[in-house]
């Protein structure tokens, strides 16, 4: 109450601004509430939705189309497979975030889960019908692309950052050229190259799966950005740390692994997480090379059906919520990691 009085109502001008903004806010909230909740249609009934147009949201579109939004073009009756595969992958990712699982044997779990993921998704064995990667879509594809890009980009980004800081001129210039080149072009053009241009340079008769090509493109792209974030961390390490490590007889890789990188990465956790979150959202760009991840499969779900075409906004809000849940979790996780790595500091 005191705070209100001294900050919002301490003179005539401030009081009137407060009242004005308060009224606007209240109006906007009631309107939004009325549209999204009060007047909204919750059932998958196109006629009711039509009747409510302009006054209430049609969440029925989600109820009607959620299977296509979530799973894209994946064959309808086989969709338990991507569901199971995605749950497995998400459980794996969640577990990987926990300290107890930061063990060497957990790498084996990764291999197993990823193998199961691909068997479930692709099929062709164990009596599962083959579903080629061009039919994969929706959330499973988004999560797969995001997690694999991050997984690939992280080590590559570290190597690029170390390379750019290297004393060896050839390695240094190679890494610098690579980073500047990739950062100089938009992700879309890299994806286009991976998808359309790259096959032209392949020998006749050989082809690499488009999903793999796109994934490699995303890894290469994300790594260039990540490298610069990590380089920022490397530059924060005092010279004395290198000197102490060297004078204790440590070689380059041992020094990097045990002394320099742990400290450098710890200082740039927010930047790294920034990069991961943006990589996650960048997966929505693969739509343009005909891979229907979450955003693409929403288009697919809504545009193909004239009855529901008008309710794309509601569909977008729905997937926005999904993106938000993932990105927000990542950002909360990043804060936890920061607390973990700062344990050695004095408080």
């Amino acid at each position: 109450m005191n705070w209100l009085r001294s900050n919002l109502f301490n003179n005539v001008f401030n009081s009137s601004v407060t009242v004005l903004l308060g009224t606007l806010l209240l109006y906007a909230l009631t309107q939004a509430w009325g549209w999204a909740i009060g007047q909204a249609v919750w059932v998958a009934d196109a006629e009711q939705c039509h009747a409510a147009r302009g006054t209430g949201a049609c969440w029925g579109v989600v109820a009607e189309k959620y299977r296509i939004i979530i799973f894209g073009r994946y064959p309808f009756e086989e969709q338990w497979r991507p569901l199971l595969a995605t749950l497995l992958l998400m459980a794996l990712l969640l577990a990987s975030c926990m300290r107890v699982f930061w063990q060497r044997w957990f790498a084996a779990v990764w291999v197993v889960v990823l193998t199961v993921f691909f068997i479930l998704m692709h099929g062709g064995v164990l009596g599962l019908a083959t579903v080629t990667t061009d039919q994969w879509g929706g959330l499973p594809l988004t999560i797969l692309l995001a997690s694999m890009s991050v997984l690939g980009a992280f080590p590559l980004g570290i190597l690029l950052a170390l390379g750019r800081m290297s004393d060896l001129p050839v390695i240094r210039s190679l890494c610098t050229v690579y980073i500047e080149l990739i950062r100089g072009v938009p992700l879309i053009s890299v994806l286009f190259m991976a998808s359309f241009l790259f096959p032209l340079f392949m020998p006749e008769g050989t082809s690499i799966d488009v999903l793999v090509r796109v994934l490699v493109a995303m890894v290469l792209f994300a790594a260039a950005y990540l490298a610069e974030v990590i380089r920022g961390g490397l530059q924060a390490i005092p010279r004395g740390q290198y000197e102490a490590a060297v004078s204790l007889g440590m070689g380059y890789w041992l020094m990097q692994r045990k002394i320099i990188l742990p400290q450098a990465l710890a200082t740039v956790v927010p930047g790294i997480m920034n990069n991961f979150i943006s990589t996650f959202k960048d997966t929505s760009l693969v739509t343009i090379v005909s891979l229907y991840e979450l955003t693409g499969s929403l288009d697919l779900a809504v545009n193909s059906d004239p009855d529901w075409m008008a309710y794309k906004l509601e569909g977008y809000l729905f997937i926005a919520l999904i993106y938000f849940v993932f990105c927000f979790s990542l950002s909360r996780y990043s804060q936890w990691v920061e607390r973990q790595v700062n344990r050695g500091k004095v408080h």
Binding site: Q241, V246, A266
Partner: peptide, 19 residues
């Protein structure tokens, strides 16, 4: 490597590994 195994060094700023 051989020489650095024989030689220990103590620095003005200690240079302990803070992590």
């Amino acid at each position: 490597h051989e020489v650095r195994r024989k030689v220990g060094m103590v620095f003005q700023q200690f240079n302990l590994f803070p992590h």
